[in-house]
C-alpha cells in the first residue's frame, strides 16, 4: 500500500512540483492514506479561498478558468487549479480535455493545474476533490479554482467544497422559466454569462435579472451579481476578478470564511465516524454474507430492511463501547 513517506513529504515541503503531483495521486487513488496526509497538512490549511466554477457543458468554463488563474496570479496569488471531467460509468475511463483550453498556464510556476476524473462522484466533482484542494493549499496556493464537470441543474457538490461559487452560463440556454427553477442557480455567489460576444446575451441577462429579482427576500445570501464575459475575447475578466476578490475579502473580514471552514471540518468528522462505524461493522466475519442473506430474503418476501439495519447498528454499539478484547469474547 503506497503511503506518505518522509522523503515525499520533504520534497513536497521544498516545493517540488513532482512531489505535489504524487501527493495528489496518493489521496486520489488511496483513500486509506488520507488521514496520514491530513495530519501532516493540517497546520498549513485554513487561509486559501476556494472558488468553484460550475455550469453546463460547453459554456466556456475551462477557457474562463485559465484566464482567472492567470489574472489571480498577476494579482500576486499562487493559484491551484483543479479541473474535473466525467468518468465513464461503463468503462471507468475518462477523457479529460480541459488542458486544451489552458495552454497558456503550462510552465507558469505561480500556477499548479491538475485534471481529475470524476470517478464515483455524481455531484459534479470527484470524491477526492476536497483532499486535492488541501494538498494544493498545503503546497502554498492561496487561491484554489475548482472546475466541476459540465453540470445540469442540481449537481451541488461544489457548494460543500468551495467558499465562492461562480455559475457560468451562456446565451440561448433557455428562457426565464429555466432561471426560475431551484437548484444550482441558488448556489451561485456570482453568475457569469459567458460568450457575451454572441447574440442573445441581453435576453439571457434579462431572464436572469427577472428571476434573481424575485429572490430578494432571502436574507441568508445576497443576490448574486450578474456578469457578462467573453473568455474568448478576454472581456469582462478583470471585473469578474475584482468581484471574486471583493467577495473573498468580505468572507474573511466577516468571519464567514472561518465559519465555512468549521462546517467543512464538522462534515469531515461526521463522515469519518460513519466510515469508521461501517468499517467496524464490515470487519465482522458475517457482515457481507449477513447482508447478502437478508437482501435475498427481503427481495423474495417483500419485507422491510429496517429491522435488520436496527439489529446491525445495535451490534456496532457493542463494539464501540467496549475494548476490542472483551468484545471479542462477548461476540463468541
Amino acid at each position: 500500500m503506497p503511503t506518505l513517506t518522509p522523503t515525499l513529504w520533504d520534497e513536497f515541503t521544498n516545493g517540488d512540483r513532482r512531489a505535489c503531483a504524487r501527493l495528489i495521486t496518493l489521496v486520489e487513488n488511496h483513500p486509506d492514506a488520507i488521514p496520514d496526509v491530513h495530519d501532516q497538512l493540517a497546520t498549513r490549511l485554513g487561509k486559501a479561498i476556494r472558488i468553484g466554477i460550475t455550469g453546463p457543458p460547453g459554456v466556456g468554463k475551462s477557457t474562463l478558468n485559465a484566464l482567472l488563474a492567470l489574472g489571480l496570479a498577476d494579482r500576486g496569488h499562487r493559484v491551484g487549479l483543479i479541473a474535473v471531467d466525467p468518468s465513464s460509468p461503463f468503462t471507468g475511463g475518462a477523457f479529460m480535455g480541459d488542458r486544451v483550453r489552458m495552454d497558456r498556464l503550462v510552465g507558469d510556476d505561480r500556477i499548479f493545474m491538475r485534471s481529475l476524473a470524476s470517478r464515483e462522484g455524481t455531484g459534479g466533482l470527484s470524491p477526492a476533490t476536497p483532499y486535492v484542494a488541501d494538498v494544493l493549499e498545503g503546497f502554498g496556493m492561496d487561491r484554489i479554482l475548482i472546475e466541476t464537470v459540465g453540470v445540469g441543474q442540481a449537481e451541488l457538490d461544489v457548494m460543500a467544497c468551495a467558499d465562492i461559487v461562480v455559475l457560468v452560463l451562456q446565451p440561448s440556454t433557455g428562457d426565464s422559466i429555466q432561471s426560475l427553477k431551484a437548484g444550482i442557480i441558488e448556489a451561485a455567489d456570482i453568475i457569469v454569462v459567458n460568450k457575451a460576444d454572441i447574440p442573445g446575451v441581453e435576453l439571457a441577462l434579462q431572464a436572469l435579472r427577472f428571476a434573481l429579482g424575485l429572490g430578494k427576500g432571502r436574507k441568508d445570501r445576497p443576490v448574486p451579481p450578474l456578469m457578462p464575459t467573453s473568455a474568448q475575447q478576454s472581456e469582462g475578466i478583470d471585473k469578474l476578478l475584482d468581484e471574486i476578490e471583493a467577495q473573498a475579502k468580505r468572507l474573511v473580514d466577516s468571519g464567514r470564511h472561518l465559519e465555512m471552514r468549521r462546517a467543512r471540518i464538522a462534515r469531515e468528522i461526521r463522515s469519518g465516524i460513519e466510515r469508521c462505524l461501517w468499517e467496524k461493522y464490515a470487519a465482522r466475519a458475517d457482515a457481507e454474507s449477513g447482508i447478502a442473506h437478508a437482501a435475498e430474503d427481503l427481495a423474495r418476501s417483500g419485507g422491510s430492511p429496517y429491522p435488520f439495519i436496527g439489529d446491525a447498528c445495535a451490534k456496532i454499539n457493542i463494539t464501540l463501547d467496549r475494548k476490542a478484547e472483551t468484545n471479542d469474547s462477548q461476540d463468541r
Binding site: 468503462t91 475511463g93 475518462a94 477523457f95 479529460m96 488542458r99 486544451v100 495552454d103 485534471s115
Partner: peptide, 14 residues
Amino acid sequence: RALVEAGMEVVYLG
C-alpha cells in the same frame, strides 16, 4: 478514445 474505453484516464493536450 480507445485508451478511455479500456478504462484509462486520458489527459488530452491537443
